[in-house]
Structures are given as C-alpha cells and as structure tokens.
Design a binder for these strands. Structure first.
Lengths: 205, 205
DNA sequence: AAGGATTACTGCACTCAGTGCGGAAATGCA
DNA sequence: TGCATTTCCGCACTGAGTGCAGTAATCCTT
C-alpha cells in the first residue's frame, strides 16, 4: 500500500522521462520536420531505448497531445462546479473555455508546433480529431448528468458537437486562408464568427 | 485530346479494378477482420500486384470511403441549385441531407461494415473524421459563395461545423450505448436530437 | 495496320511504426 | 539485506507505404 502524500521515485522519474520525450520531440520536429524524425531519434535524444518509448506514448502522434487528459479533466470539473441557475448551453461554453485555456499557451513551442503539424501532417490531424471527439463524448456525458431533467446523453452530445464543431470549423477555415494574421487576431476572428453562429442559442430568454 | 462522350478502355478497366478492390476488401474484412487482413491479401483477391494497390487507394483506410467524393459533389450541387428565397441554414441542411443520402445504403454491406469499423478501429475513425472535415470546409466555401451578402468563409465554416457536429455527436453517442436498436430507430433518435438542438436556428422568423 | 509515345502494372529492396517476448536492471517494501 | 514487483530494453518480426526501374498494355497518329 502506498501512502497518498508520497510521490514515489518511480512516478517522479516517469514524469521526468515523459517530459524529456516531449521536449526532445518538439525540438527534433522543429529542426528536422515531423516525418524526418524517427521514434528512434526521439528515444535516443531522451536517453531511453527505442522499445521503451512505447510504454510512454502509444503512437508518435500522441507526443503532440500530452496534456489532453488534463484539459478534459478541467472541463469536466467546470461542469461539476456549475451554478444552479445556469442553463446547459452556458455551462457547456464555460467548460469548453477551460479546454481552450491551455491553448493560451499558443505561445508555448509545443502548441505552436502542434497547430502547424495539424494542418500539415494528415496522421496528426486524424489523431487530434479523434482525441477531440472522445473528449466531446465525455463532456456530453457529464453535461447530461448535470442536467438530468433537461438533457439526455444523445441530446447533450448533439449540443456539444454543435458548439465544438462551430469552433473547429471556424479555426479550420481561418488556418486555411494563408493570411499573415497573428495569433491574437486569429483568436478574435474565430470568437466573432462563433459568437455570431451560436447567438440563436444564447440570447433566448 | 479525348472526346468527352468517349469512355476509354483504360477508364472502364480502372473503375472495374477499383470496384473489385472494394468488394474484395469488404468480404475479407468481414471474414477475417480489418487488422487480420493485409493489403497483400486484398490485392491478391482482386488479382493485382501488391504494389499496384497503392495506385488505386493511398491507404488501407481509404478502401472504406470509396464514394466520399461523389457525396461531396452531390452536396455542392445542392448548394448551387438553391432556391433564391432560402436562408443559409436551410440550404445547408438540404446539402447535408444529400451527403447522408448515401448512408441510406446503411443496408449496403460496405456502409454497415464502415460503421462498425469506425467505432472499432482507431485509424479508420481518424480517416473518417479527416474526410468529414475536409468535406465540411469545402461545403462552407461553397455556402459562403452562394450567400456572399450574408456569410464569409469563416462564418460559413462555423455554421457548417455546428450542424455537422450536432449530427456527428448524436451519432457517436448513439453508437456508444450498446442497445439493440435497429438502423431505423437509431436514425429516428438521431434526427430527433439534432432537430431539437438546431431548433433555435430554424424557427426564427 | 503499324509506329512510337504515354501510361499503367509489378517485383524488389527499403524505411519506419508498432508488437510480443524474454532477460536484465531498477525500485519498493519488509 | 533480501525478495517481489515494475520497468527497461534488445531482438526478431509484421505490415504499411515509397522509390525505382523494367515490362506490358493502351492510345493516338499517320
């Protein structure tokens, strides 16, 4: 039995190695490109065996989404902490904001790299969409649980899908047109389009 | 120069081989499973060389989405043929109905298999989402072009994303709960949830 | 109908992601 | 210190996907 206040050596070491892998991958992807970097390269740079890599990340793509679980948890917590008066769509928006919060680290090297690779490397985009969809379903489940009188799981999933889809669609369109806008402008343009799209939901009552 | 009414031998043969590949893959996936079937198996069953497979389909996953382009084209045509009085959301719904039309062939062996593999094999789901997102963006572009006064590309993408997201989310939630409902019931449940979710948009004015 | 030009087919050798296995090393715990 | 449990990691392997180069099929012109 492990005492809960004790973070074992193993856990610390594991977290350190995991971070080392992400850092090494970020650096190598930036210098050699995604396809030009092999898993063997990354493992070597993080000073572990190639085989061991796969006990930290299941696939090469997953290196680019290391905080996916944390973000999801933040969103679920936000749903659980809803104010009693709020309506589902409002709670959902707050939760989604928590997910996007981490993309305030658009400044972070990893996040910037991720955005580039998503629009560049098909397999990365595919993995990202998968992760997004899984998170969506989980959020929908919790949302339905938080509003048992007003939503069932399918309805909650439709609502969540609509909101996430609006954001994702706007972002995709923005990144598709090759203008030289900075991150802040992109963000503003996206928020404007999404706000207008979702307006019919938010302003009733 | 080729005369437009002439379908060359090459094209006919190519289409036949392509169909043979899809048929062989469908059969093999059903009997041996997706992972249990190699591309070499499929190529052999369609009587072509393994190497030649890749001049028909870029990846193994693409075998499961052979009519993706046709469906997209149908949706785009529907947008182009809009009635002058229609509002964007209505046209979009009509277009999306054209995309889904092909899934009326839920009866078709391929469509049924696809649904199963999407919820079973990660790479298949990833590819499906990718195709979906690409189609979304293309639809948004044409929608924006069809309503130049009311939508820009980003706004159209947000709208399209919201609608597609609602459908996709509802479907995902439905297929996730392991009840024994038939295709017709699933369809009905999905449509109900989506209709309710999108109601705030449709009933204004 | 025959010619050369173009395009498709295919085998070969190769890279790389990812897996199963088994032994060796590190860690946790008493 | 000693023993149980994880973790690490090399090895051998499968299967997807690519580049290349030679051969076969199709096309088009005359």
């Amino acid at each position: 039995m492990r005492y809960c206040w004790h973070v074992s050596l193993r856990e610390r070491k594991r977290a350190r190695t995991r971070q080392a892998l992400v850092d090494a991958a970020t650096r190598l992807f930036e210098t050699q490109g995604y396809e030009g970097t092999t898993i063997a390269d990354i493992a070597a740079a993080a000073e572990i065996g190639t085989r061991t890599f796969f006990s930290y990340f299941a696939t090469k793509e997953d290196l680019l989404f290391p905080e996916a679980e944390d973000r999801l948890r933040a969103a679920l917590d936000a749903i659980a902490a809803r104010d009693p008066g709020d309506r589902p769509a409002e709670v959902l928006l707050i939760a989604l904001r928590h997910v996007g919060e981490a993309s305030d680290e658009i400044v972070s090297p990893l996040a910037a790299l991720r955005l580039e690779l998503i629009s560049t490397v098909p397999s990365v985009r595919g993995r990202g969409l998968q992760i997004q969809q899984d998170a969506q379903l989980e959020i929908a489940r919790h949302l339905a649980a938080a509003f048992p009188d007003e939503l069932d799981v399918v309805g909650a999933a439709a609502l969540t899908g609509a909101f996430v889809g609006a954001v994702t669609g706007a972002l995709q369109a923005l990144f598709d047109q090759p203008d030289g806008r900075g991150p802040a402008e992109l963000r503003a343009a996206m928020q404007a389009a999404v706000a207008q799209t979702l307006a019919p939901w938010m302003d009733e009552r």
